[in-house]
């Protein structure tokens, strides 16, 4: 992928160069006043977003809708397939062909990996992947990068500690690869059974980075600039006692932050269950709600760029 994003599908973060990502983040920065409602924009007036959510989503779906609305566009679609033809057995390909005719850009979340790539084959309009099973979630990665860039003034050289379920968590795979591309120092903290899959570590190493693998948060918290926390899912553990032990070891609370750097920021893709205790919300470190807001300007930037409203 090179040059303008007009008309292109946004399926995987691997499709982007570092220059392109930096450009998207710059456009997103310019969108912040509109995203906050401080300024008005009619950039996408008369444009229609087809929003197809085959799986539940709060932040991703609402922030895409907010992004389209803030830019003067409209959204149609569904947030569960129950009431649509999908429930009658319609293929994704057919649903996409139909929505392609009704809208100017399609946002898709689907439980099957590769769904967005398939949608891109059948749609003439650009398709934006809003998460496909355990696969890719590129707009989450972009808003995570935007948050780090905004809060730390840049990405390169920052020590990002990623903790939680690194094996199955889809956001951390593409995020860690993108951070590697930007030259961030990476440490992966997880119990051995939930560590980062080797293929992702290899991919990061191919970019000249050497991620550190650890199972202890205490050992690395002092040196972290960014602590990225993800949920450890109970269903991954056959034994509930084992889950409690592991989940407890990676819970972020004020006590564990005692030795943290003053300017450490804590991020989380949300929803959280109990990975971050509520006493952390009031600390200077918490950035997860700002992070959730950042989904709006980043998605505004992407919608504007694929629709040709902005180069």
């Amino acid at each position: 992928m090179s040059g303008s994003l007009k008309g292109l599908d946004i399926v995987s973060i691997r499709d982007f160069s570092r220059d392109q990502i930096e450009h998207i983040l710059k456009v997103a920065e310019g969108m912040v006043p509109v995203a906050k409602g401080e300024e008005k924009s009619n950039l996408l007036e008369g444009r229609v977003l087809g929003s197809l959510f085959y799986e539940p989503s709060t932040r991703t779906r609402l922030s895409f809708e907010a992004a389209m609305t803030r830019l003067g566009g409209r959204t149609l679609g569904f947030d569960e397939p129950k009431g649509s033809s999908v429930a009658k057995g319609e293929t994704l390909a057919d649903t996409i062909r139909m929505v392609d005719a009704y809208s100017d850009v399609i946002v898709l979340r689907h439980p099957q990996e590769g769904a967005a790539r398939l949608a891109g084959h059948f749609a003439e309009k650009p398709v934006i992947n809003a998460g496909d099973g355990a696969g890719q979630h590129p707009t989450q990665t972009l808003l995570d990068l935007f948050t780090i860039m905004k809060e730390k003034g840049g990405i390169e050289g920052n020590h990002v500690v990623i903790v939680g379920d690194l094996k199955y968590g889809r956001t951390v795979h593409s995020l860690s690869e993108a951070l590697g591309m930007f030259g961030a120092k990476l440490t992966f903290v997880a119990p051995p059974t939930l560590q980062m899959p080797k293929e992702h570590v290899k991919h990061i190493e191919s970019m000249g980075m050497r991620p550190t693998i650890s199972s202890s948060l205490d050992d690395v918290i002092e040196e972290a600039d960014v602590l990225y926390v993800t949920r450890i899912q109970k269903e991954r553990f056959p034994d509930p006692a084992e889950y409690q032990k592991v989940a407890g070891a990676y819970t972020i609370n004020s006590a564990i932050l005692r030795d943290a750097a003053d300017d450490l920021i804590i991020m989380h893709p949300l929803p959280r269950v109990n990975e971050i205790s509520s006493d952390v919300d009031q600390t200077k470190h918490a950035r997860y709600f700002e992070q959730a807001f950042n989904g709006v300007p980043v998605r505004m930037a992407l919608l504007s760029m694929v629709l040709g409203g902005i180069e």
């Binding site: 293929t91 994704l92 390909a93 769904a115």
Partner: peptide
């Protein structure tokens, strides 16, 4: 999943062959 597409792969290494799915990677 019963979609009207033929599975497609990029051959990443030839000996031994390792193939990457164009759709799900």
């Amino acid at each position: 999943k019963n979609e009207p597409v033929e599975p497609e792969f990029v051959v990443e290494t030839k000996k031994p062959p390792a193939l990457r799915c164009v759709y799900c990677d």
